[in-house]
């Protein structure tokens, strides 16, 4: 069955395989490549429609500096961090707690609560646009950091709870029985047993949630208005001029915006440790 290694004695198949892999990779990376190249171009190139070719003049510093000079990119960046970091932390903390309780303490109604967490993920978020905007306006949170933080925490926690519940449920149940037999309270169990063992799951979740919140454009536009609150995704559109767009500058800004999620991945990578529960049970 798939995936099956291609035998050594089929050079043609192996060659075709390598070629196809390269092709798929190229296709996949082509847009990114174009954006990177464009971020090096001069505005003249953009005007001339040279989007794919080699830049006639490479002006890396000019373009990237322009991002910060022509717009409040730095402010937007800060806004994004102010929204994304606390939201991500809150989602991780909350989902570890809900996941622990839902996976280890069967109480009446647990299934219903779990179903609500999961079901919330299946609602198309767009249909909630008007009610949520109205809610935020009514509560006076519209156009504040809180609007986006609260919204993202509420909606990311649903998926994160599903993820954490399943991960915690897969931990050996004897560990929890042992802790309980040793007199550990549920809080102590959460802090001393669960938290250290779910580190890989939290790292994966941190990347997902961070990227998701960081990249969100829709809700940023719906729930914010002023430059003092706007995250970088919404701010990016300010760079587009009214008549002509300086695509080279926009590209440079886009690349800058993509940096934090990538950094996040490398930061979290060392927590992806397999076999954390090795030695817990049996041979």
């Amino acid at each position: 069955m798939y995936p099956r290694a291609i035998p050594e004695n089929r050079p043609l198949s192996r060659f075709a395989y390598g070629l196809l892999v390269a092709l798929v990779l190229a296709l996949w990376l082509l847009p990114l490549f174009a954006v990177i190249m464009t971020s090096f171009r001069s505005f003249d190139d953009v005007m001339a429609g040279n989007y794919w070719g080699w830049p006639s003049k490479i002006q890396v510093f000019e373009n990237y500096a322009a991002v910060f000079q022509q717009s409040k990119m730095l402010d937007y960046f800060l806004n994004s961090l102010i929204i994304t970091i606390p939201s991500t932390i809150a989602v991780l903390v909350l989902s570890t707690m809900t996941g622990f309780v839902l996976s280890r303490y069967p109480f009446p109604g647990a299934m219903v609560i779990f179903a609500l967490f999961v079901g919330g993920n299946f609602l198309p978020q767009q249909i909630m646009m008007i009610p949520i905007r109205d809610l935020m306006v009514a509560t006076g949170l519209y156009d504040t950091f809180w609007a986006l933080i609260l919204f993202h925490v509420a909606f990311q926690t649903g998926f994160a709870t599903l993820f954490m519940r399943n991960f915690i449920a897969a931990l050996p149940s004897e560990l929890f029985q042992a802790a309980r037999a040793e007199g550990a309270s549920p809080w102590q169990t959460l802090i001393h047993i669960v938290a250290p063992l779910v580190r890989p799951a939290l790292a994966a979740l941190a990347i997902l949630v961070f990227t998701f919140i960081w990249n969100d454009y829709f809700w940023a536009v719906v729930l914010t208005q002023s430059d003092a609150v706007k995250p970088v995704t919404a701010g990016l559109s300010n760079l587009r001029g009214e008549w002509v767009s300086q695509w080279n500058i926009v590209s440079a800004a886009t690349i800058l915006v993509a940096v934090p999620p990538v950094l996040m991945f490398f930061l979290m990578q060392k927590h992806f440790i397999s076999g954390l529960t090795m030695g817990a049970v049996k041979g």
């Binding site: 004897e174 042992a178 037999a181 047993i193 063992l197 529960t277 049996k282």
Partner: peptide
Amino acid sequence: PGDRGIAMVFQSYALYPH
């Protein structure tokens, strides 16, 4: 369990791996 004055040893050891 913690208030009963018991200690249990499990078949699968159940050691805290970390």
